[in-house]
């Protein structure tokens, strides 16, 4: 029998302000909404990366405005620009210095595949040295494309079994 006072639904007085959820979704929720980028600004794409961070496109709407040039504080490396062979080892070192979990966005044609620079000095795609999660096309991609890549990456992170990975290791 249901009385008017029956507390079948969530009641903060009884449950002590507790929300029940899956640990995975809680961890992923935290991770997706504070994706701090490591702006690996190498060439032309870096200008669009700066444009994305500034007033009109405002990457802060997606919780990713905290551009940190210190890899230890970053979650997501945005490789923006042509990676040359001379630069390749520096990119890899910075990637190695980032704390887990970490993701990589290859922004633009050069970072994705070498793009229009098929030459002796250019690394033909940054995925030869670091694993890439999202590739963005364009030379350079528009800021909207970068925001789309960020949302794609957030979607990917949302599906990760992060809690299982955290506690099984």
């Amino acid at each position: 029998m249901v009385t008017p006072n029956a507390e079948l639904a969530y009641n903060s007085k009884i449950e002590g302000e507790v929300v029940v959820s899956r640990l995975d979704s809680v961890v992923n929720w935290v991770r997706t909404n504070s994706m701090w980028p490591m702006p690996m600004g190498l060439a032309c794409c870096a200008i669009e990366l700066m444009g994305t961070a500034s007033a009109r496109f405002d990457i802060a709407r997606f919780g990713a405005e905290v551009m940190r040039f210190s890899p230890r504080q970053s979650d997501c490396m945005i490789v923006a620009g042509t990676v040359t062979y001379k630069m390749a080892s520096a990119v890899r070192r910075i990637y190695d210095q980032m704390a887990e979990p970490k993701w990589v966005i290859a922004m633009g044609a050069c970072a994705s595949s070498g793009g229009m620079y098929r030459s002796y000095a250019t690394l033909q795609g940054v995925d030869r040295i670091i694993p890439v999660d999202v590739y963005v096309s364009g030379c350079p991609p528009r800021p909207e494309a970068l925001l789309d890549a960020l949302m794609k990456l957030q979607g990917k992170v949302r599906r990760e079994r992060s809690a299982t990975q955290l506690f099984s290791a």
Partner: peptide, 18 residues
């Protein structure tokens, strides 16, 4: 490539661009 530690980890080298 010049840095042996990175080369050891990634196996990368400067190749003829396709």
């Amino acid at each position: 490539l010049p840095d042996p530690d990175v080369v050891a980890e990634t196996g990368a080298k400067a190749i003829a661009a396709p």
